[in-house]
Amino acid sequence: MQSKNKTVMRSMEILNLFIRHAKLSFNEIVEYSGIPKTSAYRMVQTLEEMDLLDKDTNGHYSLGVLFLRFGHLVSERMDIRQLAMPAMEKLHKELGEAINLIIRDRDEAVYIEKIQSIQPVRLYTMIGRRTPLYAGACARVILSFLPAQEREEYLKRVELIPFAKGTISTIEELRHSISQARNVGYTISYSELEDFTAAIAFPILDYKGDIIAGISIAGIEKDYVGAELERFITLGKQAASDISTKLGYIES
């Protein structure tokens, strides 16, 4: 049994090499894995026979078609709310603020999960609420981390309508906010959807590095300053990273 487990573990070491390499020669597999050549040869042959590896005409290996089938099933069956909830609950326990999970629906962001704040003054954002992608940190984190072409197409057609005293009102201001978000890895807003409220939002990325959701911390504006703000940012980034890792994202 121990021998079989060791073989499985070493086979996984070989497969894990392809997380960072699209194609590898047999010699590269041996070099990067550190597995003796004879053992590696047997394992690679078995993985190829099982459609877990594929060899091209130049003798280079890549992940096989079986991973495409499994990958499709995983993405199809995955519930982002269930996946994100442990990180959301941990964040809520640490901060006591409202924690939101947001996804994109065309030109809007939709709140699909929420944990209510334990603070005396609460925000009453409802699950199912929709906001335009430019308004508020929760929505703008989705916009900020979209591919460049999609962002540009959105910026060309969007009409900026005010919701509160801090709503972004010009395309130049919106571009600046997007650029800043991409530099620091999060979005922040003050009084954009409702006066005297604040939010910080962080991107949730899948295995391709594409944004598929956002997680936000939201509360009363006066609490989102100084050392407390830095604490929110540190813990929020970690929560988003934990969820992204579950989706297969690997930070470069």
Results as ranks from 00 to 15, higher is better:
residue 115 I to H: 02
residue 240 A to S: 12
residue 7 T to G: 09
residue 215 I to E: 10
residue 114 K to N: 12
residue 143 L to A: 01
residue 72 H to V: 04
residue 138 C to A: 12
residue 60 H to D: 10
residue 134 Y to W: 14
residue 27 N to V: 05
residue 7 T to D: 09
residue 249 Y to A: 11
residue 58 N to H: 13
residue 7 T to V: 13
residue 155 L to Y: 13
residue 24 L to A: 09
residue 186 Y to A: 04
residue 77 R to M: 15
residue 86 P to W: 02
residue 237 K to Q: 15
residue 244 S to Q: 06
residue 226 G to M: 06
residue 107 D to N: 15
residue 147 P to C: 06
residue 204 I to T: 05
residue 29 I to R: 08
residue 224 Y to T: 08
residue 73 L to H: 07
residue 147 P to G: 02
residue 153 E to C: 04
residue 150 E to T: 06
residue 95 L to P: 01
residue 184 V to F: 08
residue 173 E to M: 01
residue 208 K to C: 11
residue 103 I to W: 00
residue 124 Y to Q: 14
residue 58 N to K: 07
residue 84 A to H: 02
residue 184 V to N: 05
residue 58 N to I: 01
residue 68 L to W: 00
residue 242 D to K: 11
residue 241 S to F: 13
residue 155 L to F: 05
residue 196 F to A: 11
residue 162 P to G: 08
residue 50 M to T: 07
residue 31 E to L: 11
residue 218 A to P: 02
residue 117 S to I: 00
residue 8 V to R: 15
residue 54 D to L: 06
residue 20 R to Q: 07
residue 180 Q to Y: 13
residue 57 T to M: 14
residue 131 T to Q: 14
residue 224 Y to P: 03
residue 130 R to P: 09
residue 176 H to C: 05
residue 125 T to M: 06
residue 196 F to V: 05
residue 184 V to C: 02
residue 197 T to A: 07
residue 97 E to D: 07
residue 79 D to W: 02
residue 65 V to Q: 13
residue 82 Q to L: 13
residue 236 G to P: 04
residue 36 P to I: 02
residue 204 I to D: 04
residue 48 E to P: 00
residue 212 I to C: 10
residue 81 R to C: 05
residue 193 L to R: 14
residue 247 L to C: 02
residue 190 Y to W: 03
residue 228 E to R: 15
residue 33 S to E: 04
residue 204 I to E: 10
residue 8 V to Q: 15
residue 149 Q to V: 11
residue 124 Y to R: 09
residue 238 Q to W: 09
residue 202 F to P: 01
residue 142 I to A: 04
residue 140 R to M: 09
residue 116 Q to A: 13
residue 163 F to E: 03
residue 179 S to W: 03
residue 176 H to Q: 14
residue 190 Y to S: 11
residue 90 K to C: 08
